[in-house]
Design a protein around this nucleic acid. Structure first.
Lengths: 211, 211
DNA sequence: CAGCAGGGTGATATCTTTATCACCCGCTTT
DNA sequence: AAAGCGGGTGATAAAGATATCACCCTGCTG
């Protein structure tokens, strides 16, 4: 099996050299280039066409995220595994949205790094456990936001009443509106949730976190 | 250090027994209960108050996702590590949105499972590399959706023109509207992207994937 | 000083969304 | 047969969003 070809991008020379040395000792990895900044990284990736790029976030000049964008602009789009000390949400989510295939913290063991590179090389993604929860939370927040923009506040009122088992008449009394108003809101809810009746609407609403 | 207390939930008796045996041999883990279905799982978790619950997705009756909801309904909310063969987006994203702290495929090595349990017990999250890419893609899609609802189609037209370096006058000619119309669109863009001028708007638009 | 650029305030018209309600139909229960 | 239920069509009014444009101010350049 051909070794995975890797480019290492980090502005700290000592760290980079040490990492290159470490990776060079691994038979299934082959370091084919290195760069100390984003601009250089684009050139090196263009020349070497590696399987995986190890990329720091914090670098002077072009930071890691800008480098990801530059890869994209240059239509390179290599598989990138971020290797950084930053656990900041904006760096983590920013890197993911900018196309990174993985995010590993620099405190990872050498063997974990090796495994991560191999996974990324074969198209999978890897997240350090320390930051994976942040990614899951970001996904949950995105879903919450998108879901809560789905129904108007009145429709959410009606759905909560349905979840309590109230009939149309009871909901009308509860919300001080006519039954016909309630029925119209229910009609819109069924349409927005893409269901056929109020029972399904309640189930779907629970599934989406609306109730 | 006290061993991590684990409950195993899986409908396949042979698999469950084998897993319990495997985990019982690990000194830093302690299996304190097991269940073959969701209803039983809620009872066992209530009784044993484990640090981590290993939970399958595919189970007859209440499946894994419904069991997560039942945990929440019962205000138990244990740390749950899904352990399943399912790589389906709806199971994966569904479990995450329902509160799972991790998602591991059953093809994982015993040591990887042990590490994952320990990570989840300490509040981190773990995803199998085989499914992590799906999570990152779901996050990207959620972001795309939310971003593309941010600007109206006309505003997106104007932003793309700005990105090409056109002036207000040139954009007006290009879109067959007056300069004042273009300026109004630009004003709304600046406000929606929370920036102060068109240069920042273009940078932010690129960062958000609008251009 | 005039022209050109960007940024800003305010206005109008149209379209869409939200919230309201009347009425109709079919089914079930009393 | 009547009442009550759920699901459906259609209507109106108000609010908000979208798209349009006029006008003003400031700074820079020729």
């Amino acid at each position: 099996m051909k070794p995975v070809r890797v480019v290492v991008v980090d502005d700290h020379a000592l760290f980079r050299r040490g990492l290159v040395g470490l990776l060079s000792e691994m038979p299934d990895l082959q370091v084919v280039g290195e760069a100390e900044d984003g601009l250089r990284a684009v050139q090196v990736v263009m020349e070497t066409r590696p399987d995986v790029v190890l990329l720091d976030v914090n670098m002077p000049g072009m930071n890691g995220l800008e480098t990801l964008h530059a890869f994209h602009k240059a239509q390179l789009d290599p598989r990138v595994l971020m290797l950084t000390i930053s656990q900041k949400d904006e760096d983590l989510i920013g890197a993911i949205l900018a196309g990174a295939s993985g995010y590993l913290l620099k405190n990872a063991e050498p063997e974990a790094l090796r495994q991560a590179i191999l996974q990324v090389a074969s198209g999978n993604s890897v997240l350090s456990p320390d930051v994976a929860a942040q990614v899951l939370n970001a996904l949950r927040r995105a879903q919450d936001s998108s879901v809560h923009n789905l129904l108007s506040s009145r429709e959410q009122d009606v759905l909560r009443c349905l979840a309590r088992g109230l009939t149309t008449t009871q909901i009308a009394v509860e919300l001080f509106v006519s039954q016909n108003t309630v029925k119209t809101h229910i009609r819109h809810i069924l349409k927005k949730l893409d269901v056929s009746n109020r029972t399904e609407a309640v189930a779907k609403g629970m599934q989406l976190g609306l109730i």
